[in-house]
Design a protein around this nucleic acid. Structure first.
Length: 863
RNA sequence: GGGCCGUUAGCUCAGGGGGAGAGCGCUUCCCUGACACGGAAGAGGUCACUGGUUCAAAUCCAGUACGGCCCACCA
């Protein structure tokens, strides 16, 4: 083995062997309890970004650990067709060649997208493999594959038949660039400074008029009324009057409506039913005709001087014309939230059109209840509040999109009788009139419609497959908080509605990986760190470990490359620690769960620590606290196994009385450390396993279950003695190579023969029973043992005195604090007995230490 | 406008009524036979501020300041 860990050399050689051994399929543990995760499907056209790397690493840790624990672990991979996003990407590509999808035609365009999918779908799978994710490729799915498309149609038809899907003319959010409707949630609001324009609408039948205020002046071309609050005294006599719309000349009524906020603007609001959701509502109430004045590209269609102008150009033009005509009262600066398309950032336009909707109320109530009853639990729990709040205020979901890439809506219209037929398969003829001229609805479904079915559609639904009955509900969903609404909430709705059970028991919410400036990393921002590049430079394993250590539950992760470097250094430490083990063992370590019987001394100590660490590590993993879990393991491995235990084995391995037990213990401890780290660093640990154990594959091995071992207290004493000598050396600048002699008083007889080799190796000191006569020595206190080192010719006595006095002062402080509490009657009377006795013990300990330090000062002599 | 979260060592963050913690960074010494991608020993914090509850507050409560996030149909 090389002396240095080289990730690139070993990360190539294990993935295929894991796959070939069938380890990633749940059939690998035929009798295991099911444990299932379905991957949040990456966008098929995208590249794996650092957020995926985090998300996938967490899932892989969950899956690999459960697999080792004997579960039938299934991680379903797959990708999402990502309607608008993918269509945009392919359209951009076509634009480079001077092409436009309309020139190409629908079928040819879709074929282009499929070609794109074939290219990039492959790439993303390669990236998932490169990161070591142990997904079951035999069950890979794509949201537009045949099975999932059938599931989508089935769901649509059933919801339609139940009256939960309907088609209607409504104001929806329209993206004039993407030329499609958007759901409410797909609109991102941002505060912008705009103008509030005050326009005077004169009365037709009397002098004067009403001033209204608007941020979108151009919409006045479509006004068909003005509303005031019914209780607003300013407008008592105006309700029922007729106004004349400036520039247009349309006669419009003044109506009273509760929706109007008398506090805002002038308390009078213009009504544009075709271009504002509130106005649409009011328009319906007061029978005001909607007048559409814009087309799908947000270009003015109203006849007159503004026809053909873009909405923003028209805004200024209308304002100018109003000013010229004297109808413009004033213009104020105004900060308000403006909606943008979440895909292309274009300002969204409220637009009246005929769309398909899901009636959400009947779906949300069970989804809320399920979380309230803990059938699905969010981790961390506080995200449940956001989930509830969103669900409770949900409006019907607009699911039709005027794009080409996606699941075509399974509705057909009869040209002869106007009948609408909704069916899973294309009907041959009209069910109403028998006519054969059927046109399928040109729209496709919102991408999130198919995503909502993912937990069961990937398992074969609507077929009643074995996988479906075995792995639904999924065990856990690992996802970012940014898509709780888009995705988690809708999976809950659809899962419960169609399966009668929640889609998953736990939702583990991950934070967002941020860049150096704290910005969210995203494809659209173009600031993504490429995890593949990092994996190439430092290794996938170090990247995985770094992400795990950085990611507390629900907390954002600012990724610093230094963390990856540190994780690689840890890999190097592990590499060399195992290398040490291999060169000192006289054979291979057994793969199973064997542990040394009745270990003693250092071996008992490390085995007891191993058992404690595994227990705690398991608890932390079950709570999804991976940062803490791997922090614990990291410290145990480095500080205890390598810095202490491995050093302690060196003399023991040379001692015939201890070599056997030590070899066995060392092998077992290293073996279990590899097992524990395997979920985080699969490649490195597998490589080391092949050297240390050389039997089977670690990925398919069993999880460690070390027996509890009583912790031998006297090993602590040995460590304290060694540390005491090291501190003494360091504080006096004594060379580590300078051999020292220490006389010891061991009243309780805890010093064992093997200690002599230990202290010689670890502290460069020779032990000799006895206590010094006279003065001029330092005293090292370790548990019941006292050690004495003669100072003559070694050190500056004044420096030593200063050091002891400093320590003395600290212990005096501790004692004073403890005594203050103990003499406080309130404390002794009200504090729990355990706390009081602990405080007494603290005081006693401080007194003892003070006494010993006073002795040390005396021991120094001088003055 | 409504809601959520944060403020602890230089940095990133754990912890959580009774002795201030980790990793990285920093300082000093050491290339000792696994590892210098290393070892040993250290320095460093009125736990944002103000008040309250308590025998006891970094921890609980209220408020303040600053920072971040989410939701929203004030035209």
């Amino acid at each position: 083995m090389e002396a240095t860990y080289d990730p690139s050399a070993i990360e190539q050689r294990w993935y295929d062997r894991w796959v070939d051994a069938g380890i990633f399929a749940p059939e690998y543990r035929p009798d295991g309890e099911p444990f299932c995760i379905v991957i949040p499907p990456p966008n098929v056209t995208g590249a794996l970004h650092i957020g995926h790397a985090l998300n996938h690493t967490i899932q892989d840790v969950l899956i690999r650990r459960k697999r080792m624990q004997g579960y039938a672990a299934l991680w379903v991979p797959g990708t999402d067709h990502a309607g608008i996003a993918t269509q945009n990407v392919v359209e951009r590509e076509l634009a480079v060649e001077g092409l436009d999808r309309h020139e190409l035609g629908r079928d040819a365009f879709i074929e282009q997208v499929w070609a794109w999918k074939r290219r990039y779908g492959h790439r993303i799978n390669e990236q998932i493999r490169r990161m070591g994710s142990s997904v079951d490729w035999s069950r890979e799915r794509f949201t537009m594959d045949e099975g999932l498309s059938a599931a989508v149609r089935e769901v649509f038809v059933r919801l339609y038949d139940e009256g939960l899907i309907y088609r209607g003319d409504r104001i929806i959010n329209w993206c004039p660039r993407c030329h499609t409707a958007l759901a409410d949630i797909e609109v991102e609001h941002e505060d912008e400074t705009g103008e509030l324009v005050y326009i005077i609408y004169p009365f037709r039948d009397r002098p004067g008029g009403i001033t209204v205020a608007t941020t979108r002046a151009e919409t006045m071309l479509g006004d068909t009324g003005v509303a005031v609050h019914p209780d607003d005294p300013r407008y008592d006599d105006a309700v029922g009057e007729i106004l004349v719309l400036p520039l247009v000349g349309r006669e419009i009524p003044v109506v009273a409506d509760e929706l109007v906020d008398p506090e805002f603007g002038t308390g009078a609001v213009k009504i544009t039913p075709a271009h504002d959701p509130n106005d649409f509502e009011m328009g319906e109430r007061h029978r005001l005709e909607p007048v559409t004045i814009m087309d799908e590209a947000a270009v003015i269609t109203a006849e007159g001087p503004f026809e053909g102008l873009d909405r923003f150009v028209a805004r200024d033009a209308v304002k100018g014309a109003l000013r010229d005509s004297g109808a413009l009262e004033r213009v104020e600066e105004h900060i308000h939230a403006v909606g943008h398309c979440y895909r292309c950032r274009t300002v969204v336009e409220p637009y009246l059109s005929r769309q398909w909707f899901v009636k959400v109320r009947p779906l949300t109530e069970p989804a809320i209840e399920a979380v309230k009853r803990d059938q699905t639990r969010f981790v961390p729990k506080r995200w449940e509040n956001s989930y509830f709040h969103w669900m409770e205020n949900l409006r019907d979901w607009c699911i039709s999109r005027q794009i080409w890439w996606g699941h075509r809506i399974p509705a057909w219209y009869c040209d002869e009788c106007d009948e609408t037929i909704v069916a899973v398969d294309q009907p041959r003829e009209c069910m109403a009139c028998g006519g054969g001229l059927l046109r399928q609805d040109p729209d496709v479904l919102d991408t999130w419609f198919s995503s909502a079915l993912w937990p069961f559609s990937t398992l074969g639904w609507p077929e009643q497959t074995e996988d479906l009955s075995r792995f639904y509900p999924n065990t856990v969903m690992v996802t970012g908080f940014d898509i709780i609404y888009f995705w988690v909430a809708r999976m809950m709705q659809m899962g419960i509605h169609f399966m009668g059970e929640v889609p998953f028991y736990d939702v583990a919410i991950t934070g967002l990986v941020r860049d150096a400036e704290g910005r969210k990393m995203s494809k659209s921002l173009g600031n993504s760190i490429d995890p593949l590049a990092v994996a190439g430079e430092h290794g996938a394993d170090p990247l995985r470990l770094a992400l795990l250590q950085a990611a507390s539950p629900g907390h954002d992760v600012p990724l610093d490359i230094e963390w990856v470097v540190a994780a690689r250094k840890f890999g190097n430490k592990l590499w060399n620690g195992v290398r040490f083990g291999i060169s000192n063992l006289d054979g291979r370590v057994p793969a199973g769960d064997g542990y040394p019987r009745d270990p003693a001394g250092a071996n008992a100590w490390i085995l007891s620590r191993l058992a404690e660490t595994v227990t705690r590590f398991d608890e932390l993993c079950e709570a999804y606290r991976f940062s803490d879990a791997f922090g614990l393991l990291y410290n145990f491995t480095w500080s205890e196994v390598f810095d202490w235990y491995v050093e302690m084995t060196k003399p023991l391995l040379r001692d015939p009385d201890h070599a056997g037990e030590t070899r066995e213990t060392l092998g077992v401890v290293l073996r279990d450390v590899l097992k524990l780290f395997h979920p985080a660093m699969p490649f490195l640990t597998e490589e080391l396993w092949s050297e240390l154990v050389g039997e089977g594959l670690l990925a398919g091995a069993t999880w460690p279950a070390p027996p509890e071992v009583a912790r031998p207290g006297h090993v602590d004493t040995l460590q304290d003695l060694v540390t005491g000598v090291r501190q003494f050396r360091a504080s006096h600048g004594l060379s580590p190579r300078l051999e020292l002699t220490m006389e010891t008083v061991d009243a309780e007889g805890v010093i064992e023969p093997w200690w002599h080799e230990q202290v010689a190796a670890l502290a460069g000191v020779t032990l000799r029973p006895g206590s010094p006569r006279g003065r001029g020595f330092t005293r090292i206190v370790a548990g019941p043992v006292q050690g004495f080192i003669g100072l003559e010719g070694l050190i500056d006595v004044d420096a030593e005195r200063a050091r002891i006095e400093k320590a003395l002062a600290e212990h005096h402080d501790t004692l004073a604090r403890a005594e203050a509490k103990l003499t406080n009657p309130g404390f002794t009377a009200k504090a729990p007995e355990a706390v009081v006795s602990k405080e007494r013990a603290k005081a006693d300990e401080a007194r003892a230490l003070i006494e010993k330090l006073r002795h040390q000062l005396d021991d120094l002599g001088g003055e």
